[in-house]
Amino acid sequence: MDGTPQTSAPAPRASGGIGRHMLYVLRANPMTLLAFVLLTLFLVAAVLGPAIVPHDPLATNAVNALKPPSLSHWFGTDDLGRDVFSRVVVASRLDLAIALSAVALSFAAGSVLGSLAGFYGGWTDRIVSRVLDTLMAFPLFVLAMGIVAALGNSVGNIVLATAIVNLPFYARLSRTEVNIRREAGFVQAARLSGHSDISVLATQIFPNALPPMMVQISLNLGWAILNAAGLSFIGLGVRPPTPEWGIMVAEGARFIVSGEWWLALFPGAALMLAVFTFNMLGDGLRDIVDPRQRS
């Protein structure tokens, strides 16, 4: 890649490859670039977190309790003298893992259900759609609370609850995207090429539904992080002393009145930044997976 923008119209070249296309998308849209930089930051924190933080996130030190941010403790210390910066960084692994697995689960299940409903129509569609409508009739957070309360207080169940409340969004989106392409010319052509129903759906129609699904995934990741943190905040799911943004905000909230703002602010800011990152990521992801954006 040379850095000079092309000013005259070059001859249309063959598909430039996904790498080159990614570079174009990132350069054309600074917001996407920022989102990718932030995402990389979060991923580094999640993968390397425990190895790179300056203090043990679980080590208490009564002498150093409730110290404001300083050079040795960038985000200050909490009521047990634990380093808030280390805890915020280490927490990113758990929060991202919950969000990613929950979204992956609802994407997989939602896509299958929605695609089948959209492709076959008729009774399949009616049954799937009504079940989803019923699911959506509940306030989502309350539903998630109910699921975790009923199944038991564990990380696995938070993932499951988050996946279930998000499932209808994927199912509805994939249903529509598949449905509008059901009679498309390339689908007919695929049948002539000897594709069976399932093969048409899986290899021809569904990949074309991916670009809008990518936007949904990205927005949903942010929402899933909030959901998981929210459940922890009200005491469901992850339990102390495990570092987790939701719990840290909940615990820190008690100290805001007495002036120790850093306990809640920094994990809250991390949460906000993560959600912000995923929201911004959507459009960029869509542009990258859509071959029509390439030229």
Partner: peptide, 24 residues
Amino acid sequence: FASSPYRGRLQMVFQDATDSLNPR
């Protein structure tokens, strides 16, 4: 009919070439 031995012997060229090609 997709699995019929006659599938390959009956083929078609569609009206709208754009619509008949999978964009991916």
